[in-house]
Structure formats: structure tokens, C-alpha cells
């Protein structure tokens, strides 16, 4: 006699998997749906280009967007070259078994999991006070760079290690120098993974709140230089929802703008990565 359909070998696991997937999907849709639903009612072009007024209850987020952009610019222009250099060093000049490189990797993994508030306190002590940069976009960007570096280095290093060993072997067999192998062969082939690391890092940086409260401050006027204090999008959301009664609508709209920025950055990197693969790697 056949078993009841529910106890069938394949039905139960299928049901369980779909339930779990459905729950995850629902939680995501609820979160995003709520932000979109509440945010679109307040979000407008006017909101994006006007400065905040009345502690953010009115006006828009133009100064916040500029501050966020500058913080990210500082963060990425510092972390990208250092991250790429460190990743190349780890992947191409050290072996996984060397104690020194193991120590660096272990340290990076620990750093990647350090809570952001700790980075914030470090940034405040080191950049704001010791180096005398004060609460500024520069301090915030540099603190974020410290936070993003571990992820950036490890992702890029894995990207380099994932390249076929045959490339290195056949380049060496042709008498090519390590430098030209790196610049002409390995680096172009590793660009997609570099972009992934960049986006993961950028995603972490753009959504950061705790590390920035202690370093870039939360002055919401238009920054005049990198040494000016500036408020990032995530801090603006935090401030509006926690400290400003009646700021919920603006917080939703800002959150929607933040998510839109992340989606755009993600799409842009996928597009560049695809374009790179098609033109640079595969056909030239």
C-alpha cells in the first residue's frame, strides 16, 4: 500500500525548503515593501535637492547626500589602493602555509568581524584626537576605510587565488616577469572579483552608522571641506527615527534613497564587470 502523499520521501523536504525560502522572502519583501510604501509618499526630486530644515522634519537630504558621497570617496580612495596592494601581496607573494601570511589573514578575519562601534571609538581616538582631524568627513572616511579594508583584501585575495594556476605557470614558462604577468594577465582577469570586494565594502560603508557618529559627526549643513563635519545617510535615518519626533516620514524617504543608492551601485558594478569581461578580457 502506498504511503500518504504528505509522508512521501520527496514531498516533506520540498515543503520544508519552500517554507523556509518563503519565510526569508516574506521577511525581505515586508522590510523593503514597508520602506518603499512609506518612503515613496514623501520622496520626491525636491526632497533630494533641498537641504534639511526643522531638524530634518522638513526640507530634504541634499547636504546629507553630499556628505555621504564625500565620506565614501575618502573611504574608497584610501582603501582601494591599500586593499588591492595587500591582496596582491598575500595572493602572489606569500603562500597559504607561511606563518607570516597566516597571521595577516587571521588578523584580517578578526578585524572583519569587529563590531563597528569599536572602529568608531578607534577612529575617534586616532583620527579625531591623536591626528587632530576632529569630527570631520576625513576622519569618518578614514575610519570607514579601516573597517572596509579587511573585507576588501580578503575578497580580492580570494579572487586572485581563484585564477587558474596555469596562467602563472605558462607566463613563467614564457619568461615573462612577475610584474608584467600581474599587470597584463592577472589583474585584468581579477577585475570582476575586485569589483565584488569593492561593492561589499562600499555596501558596508554606506550603511554604517556607529563608526561615523564618533568620527564624522552629525552636523547636517553643507560641508565646505573634507575637514568639515558631515552627516551620512544612515546617521540621518537614525537621528530622524530616534531623536526627532515627527521625523518618521523623512526617515522612510531617506532609507528609500539609501536602498536606491545601494541597488544602483550594485547594478553599476555588475554592468562594469560584464562589460570588462566582454571587451577587455575576452576580446582584446
Amino acid at each position: 500500500m502506498n504511503k500518504p502523499r504528505l509522508l512521501n520521501d520527496s514531498l516533506l523536504p520540498t515543503l520544508a525548503i519552500w517554507t523556509v525560502a518563503g519565510l526569508v522572502g516574506c521577511a525581505f519583501l515586508w522590510l523593503i515593501g514597508d520602506v518603499i510604501w512609506q518612503g515613496t509618499r514623501y520622496l520626491s526630486w525636491e526632497f533630494l535637492i533641498s537641504p534639511p530644515a526643522n531638524a530634518g522634519r522638513q526640507g530634504g537630504i541634499s547636504t546629507i547626500l553630499v556628505s555621504t558621497g564625500l565620506i565614501l570617496l575618502v573611504c574608497m580612495s584610501v582603501s582601494l589602493p591599500i586593499g588591492l596592494g595587500a591582496a596582491v601581496f598575500l595572493a602572489e607573494w606569500t603562500s597559504v602555509s607561511q606563518p607570516f601570511s597566516q597571521f595577516i589573514r587571521r588578523s584580517l578575519d578578526v578585524l572583519a568581524s569587529v563590531p563597528s562601534i569599536v572602529f568608531g571609538l578607534f577612529g575617534n581616538a586616532f583620527f579625531c584626537q591623536l591626528l587632530g582631524l576632529g569630527f570631520s568627513i576625513l576622519s569618518g572616511g578614514l575610519t570607514l576605510a579601516c573597517m572596509v579594508l579587511p573585507i576588501l583584501i580578503r575578497t580580492t585575495e580570494e579572487g586572485f587565488r581563484a585564477l587558474p594556476q596555469d596562467y602563472r605557470l605558462s607566463a613563467s614558462a614564457l619568461g615573462l616577469t612577475k610584474k608584467s604577468t600581474l599587470f597584463h594577465l592577472l589583474l585584468p582577469a581579477a577585475i570582476p572579483s575586485l569589483l565584488v570586494g569593492f561593492i561589499l565594502g562600499l555596501g558596508r560603508a554606506i550603511a554604517e552608522t556607529a563608526a561615523l557618529i564618533f568620527t564624522s559627526g552629525y552636523v547636517d549643513r553643507m560641508p565646505e571641506s573634507l575637514l568639515d563635519s558631515g552627516r551620512a545617510l544612515s546617521i540621518h535615518i537614525y537621528d530622524l527615527s530616534m531623536n526627532v519626533p515627527g521625523g518618521d516620514q523623512a526617515a522612510y524617504a531617506t532609507a528609500l534613497a539609501l536602498i536606491a543608492c545601494l541597488v544602483m551601485l550594485n547594478s553599476l558594478s555588475s554592468w562594469i564587470s560584464g562589460l570588462w569581461a566582454r571587451t577587455r578580457i575576452l576580446t582584446t
Binding site: 587558474p164 596555469d166 596562467y167 605558462s170 614564457l174 615573462l176 597584463h184 582577469a189 576580446t283 582584446t284
Partner: peptide
Amino acid sequence: LRRRVGMIFQNPNPFPMSIHKNLAFP
């Protein structure tokens, strides 16, 4: 030395470039 002594491996391993650049690069 490696310019004088070329090597071919078991698996074909052209570089991820054009046919032309594979030869022009070295």
C-alpha cells in the same frame, strides 16, 4: 633561459585575451 626553452603543458592554457594578443604579449 625560458625564452630559449619553451614549454607546452598538458592542458591547453591560452591567456584570456585575443588570439593576436596571446602571441603579441610575450
